[in-house]
């Protein structure tokens, strides 16, 4: 059993005065593994990601990163410590070029350091996504959704993540592109020592790539276990109750 890198412990989160969206959620992410979270829309998947990334503060419970409590920490601070989010909808800095997107993700202002960081990561990034090299001076906003998702992953690599949070990486993308993205994530996991938490609405692709799956329903964990044990019946039961 490898060490735990991220732990969500009994977390309850909600917006404003409304009913909580997540109730008493607990998940554990081990070093070097991929944990998949699936569930219908409104099950609380994005809320979970945003909570771990520091955009929402839990009402109860705690989020631990490398054993230290991180709830309430600012998103930028967490990103700098290695908890890196890829938000839903392949969001990139559209008015900036591909290269600029990568350069400002190095989190440094010293030109030399930036150059060093970029040249270190460049090899891996362009090996995973050769298209980014060709498009390096294009505006990110003018690229296709798939290319933006690739840039998003490349940007995260630049940040040297310890935990990568991917919120519906296949949303709105063509099946072929989704295949490429997942292949790249698999490669990334082999090369870099990191853990991933991936949220999808659809367990199709995800099950093949992760060790463990969590099914969320109505803000609660309705099933958790090794991904190969999740068959159609169990899935149906976990989704619909």
């Amino acid at each position: 059993m490898s060490a735990t890198v991220l732990e969500v412990r009994d977390v309850t989160v909600g917006y404003g005065k409304n009913e909580p969206v997540l109730h008493d959620i607990s998940i554990v992410l081990a070093q070097g593994t991929i944990l998949g979270v699936v569930g219908m829309n409104g099950a609380g998947k994005s809320t979970l990601m945003r909570t771990v990334a520091g955009m929402l503060t839990p009402r109860a419970g705690e989020v631990l990163f490398e054993g230290r409590r991180i709830n309430g920490r600012h998103t930028a601070e967490l990103a700098r410590r290695g908890v890196v989010l890829l938000p839903e909808g392949h969001r990139v800095l559209r008015p900036l070029t591909v290269r600029e997107n990568l350069r400002i993700a190095t989190m440094s202002l010293a030109p030399r350091k930036v150059r060093k960081r970029v040249s270190e990561a460049e090899g891996l990034i362009y090996e995973l996504f050769p298209i980014l090299e060709r498009r390096s001076s294009q505006l990110a906003g003018l690229m296709s959704g798939g290319e933006q998702q690739m840039l998003s992953i490349a940007r995260a690599i630049m940040q040297r993540p310890k935990v990568l949070l991917l919120d519906e990486p296949s949303l709105g993308l063509a099946p072929r592109v989704i295949g490429e993205i997942y292949a790249a994530l698999g490669r990334l996991r082999e090369t870099a020592d990191l853990a991933m938490l991936i949220v999808e609405q659809n367990s199709d692709r995800l099950a093949a790539h992760c060790e463990e799956l969590v099914v969320l329903r109505d803000g609660k964990v309705s099933w958790v276990g090794p991904s190969r044990e999740l068959n159609a019946d169990r899935l149906h039961a976990a989704y619909f109750g």
């Binding site: 930028a76 890196v84 800095l93 400002i104």
Partner: peptide, 23 residues
């Protein structure tokens, strides 16, 4: 780089913070 980060914050402060930029 300062300027590009400023553009990043002005385009989408939340996304910029995901990039590690303190808005």
């Amino acid at each position: 780089l300062v300027g590009r980060r400023l553009s990043a914050v002005s385009y989408d402060a939340e996304l910029a913070s995901v990039y590690g930029i303190r808005g």
